[in-house]
């Protein structure tokens, strides 16, 4: 079952996971995502939590509803790329802040980032 970070609202974590799945290509443009019931089972959460996550994703223009059919990924490739950059930036911001605080300069940061990227 999906591993949650326990101190954050589940709906936010589900949003991030679905966005990550779109960024990684697990869901592509126009893909129909699973039903509320299926997603509730995949994430092991209450269906209402899924409903909340999906409605936020819809408000952001990431998903759209086809009445009576289901929800689909409503982003073209350019928008997905943009979202990928935004998600990655958000993750890196904290790391940069902490590295700066311990005096890691940009050249060293790049070198470490490159090494870790290759290593992973």
């Amino acid at each position: 079952m999906f591993e949650f970070n326990k101190n954050e609202p589940l709906w936010q974590q589900i949003i991030l996971d679905i966005q990550t799945k779109i960024a990684s290509g697990y869901y592509t443009t126009g893909t129909q995502i699973e039903s509320v019931r299926e997603l509730a089972s995949i994430y092991g959460v209450n269906p209402n939590t899924i409903v909340k996550s999906l409605s936020v994703l819809e408000d952001k223009g990431i998903l759209k509803t086809e009445r009576g059919i289901g929800k689909f990924v409503d982003m073209d490739e350019a928008a997905i790329e943009e979202m990928k950059i935004e998600l990655a930036s958000r993750l890196i911001q904290n790391v940069v802040k902490q590295c700066k605080a311990m005096g890691v300069d940009q050249i060293l940061f790049d070198a470490i980032a490159k090494k870790e990227y290759m290593h992973e």
Partner: peptide
């Protein structure tokens, strides 16, 4: 439950 997590930054268990 979600409002509690959001407000308190803690799990229901905590």
């Amino acid at each position: 439950a979600e409002e509690l997590r959001e407000e308190r930054n803690q799990s229901i268990d905590d």
